[in-house]
Each structure stands twice: as C-alpha cells, then as structure tokens.
Nucleic acid binder design. Structure first.
Lengths: 162, 162
DNA sequence: GCTAAATATTTTAGGCTTAAAGCAAAAGCG
DNA sequence: CGCTTTTGCTTTAAGCCTAAAATATTTAGC
C-alpha cells in the first residue's frame, strides 16, 4: 500500500466535503433567521424584509442615498431598488428628491413619517436578532464575526478580480 | 457616578450591537456566495440555484423523495416545489411516480439523464464552493462549522417551540 | 461643439418565493 | 359506517429578484 498518496487524497476529499458541509450549514442558518424575521415583520408590521432593509439604509444615512448607492448597500439590482422605492414612496415613508447636479439621479430620503415608522420597527427587530443569536455566547459571536470577516474579505477580493 | 449601572448598560448595548453586526455580516457572506454560485450556474449550465438544489436532494436519495420531503429539505413551501418540479420534469431531468399507498402523493426521482446532467454540474459546483471558502483555513472552517451548528440547534429549538 | 462612451435610473420578461385558498384522499373517531 | 380533521399536493395572487434592454443625461475625447 502506498503510504503517502492515500493520506493526501483523503485530506483533499475531506477538505472538499468540509467546504460543502460548511456552506450548507451557513445557508441553513441564514434561511432559518431570515424566515423568522420575515414572518415577524409581516405579522407585527405588515411589511417585508427588503422594505425594512431599504428604510434601515436610509436611517443610517440621513443625508439620503442615491438609487445606485441603495442598490450596492442592499446587494440587489438597481431595477429592484426602483420597485421597492416606488412602494415605499407610495406609502409615504420615503421621498425621491431630484439631484440638482445631475438630472438623471435622485436622492432618496426618509420622510418624517418614515423615520417614525422605522424607529418602531427597528427596536423590535433588534430584539428579535438578539434573541435569535442567543444560542451563542458573546465570545462565540465575536469569534464568528471575525471568521466571517475573513471570509468576506476573501469573497470581495474574488469579486473585484472579475 | 454610579459604578455598576453604566457598565451593565454598556455591556448590554454592545451585546445588541454585536448580534446585529454579526447578523448583517452573516447575511452579506451568504449573499455574496449565493450570488457567485447563481451566476456561475447560469453561465455554465443555464440553470438556477433552486433547480440545482432540488436535483442535489434527489441525488442524495436515489429511492426518491415526496414533494413534502423536498419542501422540508429545501426549506421552501410545497407550492414552490411544485413549480420547480414541473420545470425539471418538462426538461426530462426528474419524474413524478405515483405512490401506490397514497393516491394524493407522488415520489420524485432523478431520471437517468437527470442523474447524468447533475453529476457534471455537481463536480464543478463543488470546486466553486471550495474556492469560495478558500479564505478560511481548514481549522477555521471546522470552527465555523461548529459555531454554526450551535446556532442552528438554538434556531431549531426556537422553531419547534412555536 | 460634436460625437462616443459612460452613468443613473427605469422598464421588461421571466423565474423564485411566500401565504393562503382549494381539492382530493387518507386517517381518526364516534 | 359516516363524519370531521388532517395530510399531500396544486393553484393563485402578490411581491422579490435578476439580467438585459431602453431612456435620458453627463462626461470625455477630438
């Protein structure tokens, strides 16, 4: 029996299996969490995750954001942002303001009502997230945060290199 | 100045922030990875992630799966599974077989062609996942897998208790 | 200044996803 | 047995999402 080759092969095969297993578990956890949050947003506030996400971005940027900036931050296409913005604007939670420098662009801002509505949702939302991550201790969360940071850096590098 | 209260408050506030930050990063990583895989599946095989996922489930269960089992494993509604199965069946990759015990139910199986097509895709897919997780060492992947396992257990407990 | 390329957004077509309603068959129960 | 409830699947309506094409405007190069 060859002494080296089997080990190497086994190592590789395990590595493969390892990445796949990790990926499936990562996806499962994300799905479980988004599922919970989606359900609660619907039941408590009759809204959806993407709508909430858009409002959250604007809350963090009181000066407003361009559609393209929203698209980048939300990691969805600009076409998608158009649709969600249309709805939130119709509901009176955000407003498109024309850009004086560039007539193609517009800045999206929270309306006072939007800010108010979001504040109520955000508070509950934060509680949900804390609760959903209670399975991990503070140091475990910290550790996971670090590991994901490393992964994210790698993924972004890959993205950039395309 | 009170000595205890501020610390407690600070600790709490940090805990909150910590869970939220972790959640956002988890979501970002998942989105980056699914985005890559979705794009590559489309470009290389003119297919989509859910179609691939359904075939993968069947590959792991050569005896076939009920629609409801597929739904559970894929973490989507049964209505959704109906639509994806319709397409794959039309493409000749899977087949619905009537259940002799229960006339409401059916068992979905890979066709020989489906198995063949999936095998080709699965090999490349595995390479992509390995590549996307190369940012982490083997022990880091192991660690993350463990942490996610703990999180998953917590989340499933929460689910069950509803 | 004119034209070409780039940019910001919207529109379109098609697929995914959900929640909820519908339908048929099976299971439980009096 | 007959009735109700549950189960397995499909259908429907509405929203999310993408890729690609279209539109309008700005920027760059000549």
């Amino acid at each position: 029996m060859p002494a080296v080759k089997p080990d190497l092969e086994t190592r590789l095969a395990e590595d493969h299996h390892q990445a796949i297993k990790l990926w499936l578990r990562l996806l499962t956890c994300t799905n479980l969490i988004t599922g919970q949050i989606r359900t609660r947003l619907r039941e408590h506030f009759q809204t959806t995750l993407p709508r909430f996400d858009l409002l959250a971005q604007l809350e963090r940027h009181p000066e407003g954001l361009k559609m393209s900036e929203l698209s980048k931050r939300m990691m969805v296409t600009t076409g998608n942002v158009t649709g969600i913005t249309d709805q939130l604007e119709a509901e009176g939670l955000v407003r498109r303001e024309p850009d004086p420098q560039d007539r193609r662009a517009c800045t999206v801002k929270l309306t006072p009502r939007g800010r108010q509505v979001f504040a109520r949702m955000a508070q509950e939302h934060e509680g949900w997230v804390i609760e959903l991550f209670e399975g991990l201790s503070s140091s475990e969360k910290e550790l996971m945060y670090t590991l994901l940071g490393k992964l994210k850096t790698h993924l972004n590098g890959k993205e950039a290199r395309r």
